[in-house]
Amino acid sequence: MTGPQERQRATALGAISILMWSALALLTVLTGKIPPFQLAAMTFAIGAIVGGAWIIAQGRALRAAMAWPPRVWLLGVGGLFGYHLLYFVALRQAPPAEANLINYLWPLLIVLLSAPIGGERLRAWHLGGAVLGLAGIVVLTLGRGEVGFAGAHWPGYLAALGCAVVWAVYSVTSRRFGEVPTDAVAAFCAAAAVLAALCHLAVETTVWPATTGAWAAVAALGVAPVGAAFYLWDIGMKRGDIRALGALSYATPILSTALLVAAGRAAATPTLLLAAALVVGGAVLASRDLWRRAA
């Protein structure tokens, strides 16, 4: 049974993964022209090495991280690799703005699924917080003036919706596999790296990083957004407040955009502040139980 303090700690660790994911867009831009599946293979491999090093440093056997029944592998590899596969398809078959908007239904789905799958009690403020967060993303996307859903892109829209469903189901269902330690994520990352490499060899031409900075960006991606973030997210989903983390997840695109602005890769707009206010308000509302407990 998870106690209040452990629950708060696990939620905080899950929130750190959200901060790490906010650097995903900027770091990806800094990697240069590396094809998507090749980049996924490289970064998942680094993420697996990070997890493996942690397991060894803790005095545990690597083999133990792999000894799980097929349903555990299906959930882990299906969640990590399945999400990225659908995401790449969505970006190729639909405009990025629309694809990302649909993809970011996953935090709302996490909140909605927290009751039937995660065993949480869903209150009005949890749902309200998630809806506010979604409103923030809609404001951010519409503020760019880039959205115009067209019927010709429906395969990409479906793939983006698949992204949202896969990641939400993977995240919340992890709660039902609480007996599986986070060490197993290292094995999932390794399997995802192999699958991504196979997809790369089948459909892409290899392009290696052109500069030292690009190599550093690849390494940073593998260590944090595609490495440590998955381990922390696993802890948060298994022992933290799923509803609060779902609403907090809407901070990812806001922080991501802010980082791009700070790095001179995007322009600041008034809608960014409004979107940020909606997301923060939604996160505070959905995390009401945690604030009460802390008080």
Rank of each mutant, 00 (worst) to 15 (best):
H200T: 02
F177C: 08
G133F: 01
T28Y: 07
A124D: 14
V138L: 10
K238G: 11
Q5G: 15
Y87R: 03
R92W: 01
V180N: 02
F177M: 13
W233I: 04
A247K: 01
I235D: 08
P107L: 02
G59Q: 05
P181A: 11
R243K: 13
A64S: 14
T11F: 10
L255N: 10
A267Q: 15
A196Y: 03
G240K: 01
Y87E: 11
Y157P: 11
V72S: 02
L26A: 14
S249V: 05
R243E: 14
A61Y: 04
L195K: 11
L85I: 09
Y83C: 06
V207C: 01
G59L: 01
G282K: 00
Q5F: 15
L39A: 09
G47C: 03
T2W: 03
G79N: 10
A219Q: 03
G240A: 03
A40K: 08
L278Y: 09
S114W: 00
A15S: 13
A45E: 01
L260G: 07
A150E: 14
E6Y: 11
H153V: 08
H84P: 03
C163Q: 04
V147L: 15
R121M: 11
A40L: 15
N100M: 15
P95C: 06
E6S: 15
I16R: 08
A193K: 04
A286I: 14
L201M: 12
A258W: 11
A219P: 01
I102Q: 00
P253Y: 01
W167G: 00
A228G: 15
T182Y: 05
W233A: 07
